[in-house]
Nucleic acid binder design. Structure first.
Lengths: 212, 212
DNA sequence: GTCTATATCGTGATAGAC
DNA sequence: GTCTATCACGATATAGAC
């Protein structure tokens, strides 16, 4: 409780260095996990990129499993912090925001690849990132549902909004794989067309139920 | 050249057994690659499932790399053979066919997982299935473009058909990952909504260019 | 054609020096 | 807190018996 300065400095300074080291490891791990996938990535490679030995990495994170989830949660924290300055997009601005994210991501192929590879890998038996991605998809769907609610007709049932949101996230993910294999694939145009089509579908579908 | 029966039998019978063994290995490999991804799957597991030792597997396929591409090409051959009886779907029937495939796939989670995991894994550095999936996506896009051409307005430019086709394939792939993590995700409904939206987009987009 | 045995390597993880 | 050294294990691949 009593925080005399020398003691405090001695406690804070090393922690600051530790935090810096941890950040370097997390960056290196994201790079290597993205380049090779979780299973093929090796702690030795990660450690080398972070400027240590693999024993040092394990000292900070305990195991390869825990390092992976730490990486993913750290990325989320960074992304959220990036939104801090701006207002959190809602309604139709959120749909615009999705397209902006795609355009931004085309300059960050490494990050895109990490998410594409790791999310798909996570469906395999006993993969350490399984619950992370399950939760992530659920959260994303909720956010995109809010975006569509703002542009859909007033009484649109939640199930239809959910369908549009699921489709939107699916297109973006599937697109990334195609784009990583062939950079000619025009991600923004494809996503924009899909979203425009889904907005139409939300607007017209209700009539179709009884009007046909 | 001289095909006396005993010699022919001796040549054919073992080949038939070999072909059968190879098929068993390919089935086992698809299962294990699907369950764990390529990198974590082991030849020992595959061999055990096929009723052999891993040395036997390597005798037939030479290496793990070559086994993977053999598996993928074999699957394509099987699927094509399955279409043999029916007529190859074209035009709007092909879009219907996509939805039927999704419904069928919901009874084959193992196969879905194999394609989802391996296709995403293939974007990593030096992955042996990289060119397979690159070619596969190119081929699929071509087929789906033909499907959309039949339902789009007459003069629709190829680039717009290509966008719709890319989107359709992307939705299906992205959907699979979400569905594998959460079987509640209604794949057929989501795909149907997306396709309906894209058909609308194809129909209306042309006017939008000058009509707005 | 399949086996056993083995070679060789890389992995994640631990123990203990400094 | 990071290192060196080492462990135990599993991987792919090869060689040779049968």
């Amino acid at each position: 409780m009593a925080a005399r300065r020398p003691a405090a400095e001695r406690a804070v300074r090393p922690q600051a260095q530790t935090a810096e080291k941890r950040r370097r490891i997390l960056d290196a791990a994201l790079t290597v996990f993205g380049k090779h996938g979780y299973n093929k990535a090796s702690l030795v490679d990660i450690a080398e990129l972070a400027g240590m030995t693999h024993a040092g990495v394990l000292h900070h994170f305990g195991s390869k499993d825990r390092l992976l989830v730490a990486v993913l949660e750290h990325r989320d924290a960074v992304d959220v912090a990036g939104l801090e300055g701006q207002h959190v997009p809602t309604g139709k601005e959120m749909l615009e925001h999705l397209l902006n994210t795609i355009r931004l991501n085309m300059e960050r192929a490494g990050l895109v690849q990490a998410y594409a590879v790791l999310s798909a890998e996570s469906v395999t038996e006993g993969h350490p990132a399984q619950s992370f991605f399950r939760d992530r998809f659920a959260g994303l769907r909720g956010m995109v549902v809010d975006g569509y609610r703002a542009v859909a007709p007033a009484g649109t049932p939640a199930s239809r909004l959910e369908i549009a949101a699921t489709a939107t996230i699916a297109v973006m993910d599937g697109l990334q794989v195609q784009w990583l294999l062939d950079p000619e694939v025009p991600m923004p145009e494809v996503a924009e067309a899909t979203i425009a089509g889904l907005v139409d579908w939300l607007a017209q579908g209700q009539q179709g139920d009884r009007g046909e």
